[in-house]
Design a protein around this nucleic acid. Structure first.
Lengths: 205, 205, 205, 205
DNA sequence: GATGAATGAGCCTTCATTCAT
DNA sequence: TATGAATGAAGGCTCATTCAT
């Protein structure tokens, strides 16, 4: 008999999420999860192949959606006529970030797991992957726009990596601290202003 | 019989560091550590009360030193006559950061442990603490300098927190990626330039 | 939905045989069997009471047939007039063994299961049972033929058991090694020659 | 606290042997072993790396000793002058087999484990290995003695394998049935007589 | 100071089998 | 006949820690 009105699967997901959030992936106990879910270990393995698979299920859809969205945004911008890119950069970025934050808040629990509890899983390098994507598109943008920052070595891929890393770390701070969406929108917008100033400075725009 | 010419304690520290770096705190095995150190579990517990205490010992001096240094720098700046602060801000910061990075590289292993392997220990929130320190001094500085950013709520403590978080995350990326000191100096300097532009933008200097 | 054109029962038998041959009885997984058979566990238990029952079904008809045949051959020989027995012994045995091997090869899979995969089942002592049958008839033959080997304790039931055991072990080696029938016929014939010489030696014929 | 006057290791070995003999390797439970030994699982793993290692420890010394002895006997016979081999064959073999049986009875428990309970271990093919050794030396002997049995294909390696297999199976029947040593000596001697007659027949000596 | 055998709870996972549908 | 989710005991094994010597 499982817990209350929920199906076995639902109970497992609910209690899995609770346990992972509470203890982190590594220190989570499958037995505690199933016990709290009012379910047996055997039942668990009917749904998931192992503990990792449960974490995956809780997190993958959101991660995958975010990556897809992020890639498509970057790709769309990349396809703009060169002449429009710099002009639209600010507005474009604004929309992009807003959508990004919206998406995160629409899947808040998943990102909370990802940011705070993914140690020991395949997602521990999640931010790193977003960074890599952004860096590669940023390099394309700088080069195609005729800016000499890279050519002159005033800016290097490593620096882009570090700055990008800083940016995403900052964004996900709102998740780490479970900031209300309303506040997050404001902060992230200011953050964007802050970073835009930085980019203009080092890219000489 | 312990390893080579090293004392029991030294062997434990050397092999502890190796294991923690290799596996992270949680997945490290005390038995493997003492075995490699050519020492027994009993001997270990003569020096440390538990696994956490060893991690602590490897990491605390560096952490404490960095915090002390950081606090003193902030305090010294805080004590400057109001009139000098803004003028000296840029130079001051440069020196401060340089010293900060020097310190990190002088205790590289400890910070590598802290950044990459501290999950499960009391230090997992290490960066967070530096952020808190910086934010509180930044607030004092903004307020005392007569800048209306906070009063007008254009800038909030939370935003400061986020930006500061971004900065320290970026700085410690050089540790995570084990960047050569020479390179790190250059990147961190560019990073500072980047962030200074941001600060000027949102503080209206 | 079961596999291809086969009925539920057929699928279970086919995949059961495959699994038992592959892993042996003990290490076989019922769930794997029904999964591969495209059938459910529930369906399985409609046909068989448990895992052993499936093994039984795959193996019993052949085992039973062989035992019946073997018993009847022994019985027929036993009923021959005493005067004919020794004369016909050699020819008789030849035919008997040929039929025996033919039967095994006509039910090769079943005997392969029996020889190589029956650990943990009621058939693990299969050869032992054939031995017991043969020994009891051999004793009758020796006694009725007036040979003093048993009376003089030159030969004992235990020795008969051991030799008989050796013989059947040898015969079933052809199954264990999946020897082609054509080869097996030749080897078994030589084996019979070999053993006949032994019998003549210890029975003084 | 372990059982009675025995050390932890002794208790584990005693109860391990008991459990393996009772249930066979696969169906043996480590937990039952340690429980009966009055010891904890953790203590077990201080002595053996896993369940297989315990079986190994109980069985390997005896197996290894027997193989070594068997190989050396075969090698010694192989080195005899060609002229002496056939003459000495009978006597030589007698001594060899006696020593072989003595060795088995000096390590009876180990061979009982090997014969009756080794399914699932690396020793399940133990007899097979003895057979391979004997077959290879038998081939050398036949060839070097000028006998045409192999050349004429009247006898083949496969036949030698089958016969050798029969012989060792028979020998180890005394272990399977836990026959008293005194009886075994007599039976094995008769068995040897039986087999010698067979060899003479098919090799035309 | 040091030993290292022993603890025993805890880990994840697999299994044959049952039963309400 | 058939489903397949659920059972729950049992499996082998690892761990930080303790303690008598």
């Amino acid at each position: 008999m499982n817990k209350g009105d929920f199906s076995t699967l639902q109970s497992i997901m609910i209690e899995g999420k609770r346990e992972f959030l509470d203890k982190g992936f590594n220190d989570s106990s499958l037995r505690r999860i199933v016990k709290r879910a009012g379910v047996t270990t055997g039942a668990f393995y009917g749904y998931y192949s192992d503990k990792k698979a449960l974490f995956n299920a809780l997190v993958f859809p959101a991660v995958d959606g975010l990556k897809t969205m992020f890639l498509s945004v970057q790709e769309t911008f990349d396809q703009l006529p060169e002449t429009e890119k710099v002009d639209k950069l600010y507005d474009y970025t604004s929309d992009e970030i807003r959508a990004f934050v919206d998406y995160i808040y629409d899947h808040f629990d998943a990102f909370k797991l990802l940011i705070s509890c993914s140690d020991g899983t395949d997602f521990s390098e999640f931010i790193h992957e977003l960074v890599e994507i952004e860096v590669s598109y940023t390099i394309r943008f700088i080069e195609s726009s005729g800016n000499d920052a890279l050519a002159s070595k005033r800016v290097t891929p490593d620096l882009l990596h570090i700055i990008s890393s800083a940016f995403f770390s900052a964004v996900f701070e709102v998740v780490k601290h479970e900031m209300p969406k309303r506040d997050a929108d404001v902060y992230i917008n200011s953050l964007k202003t802050f970073f835009m100033a930085g980019w203009q400075k080092i890219l000489n725009y």
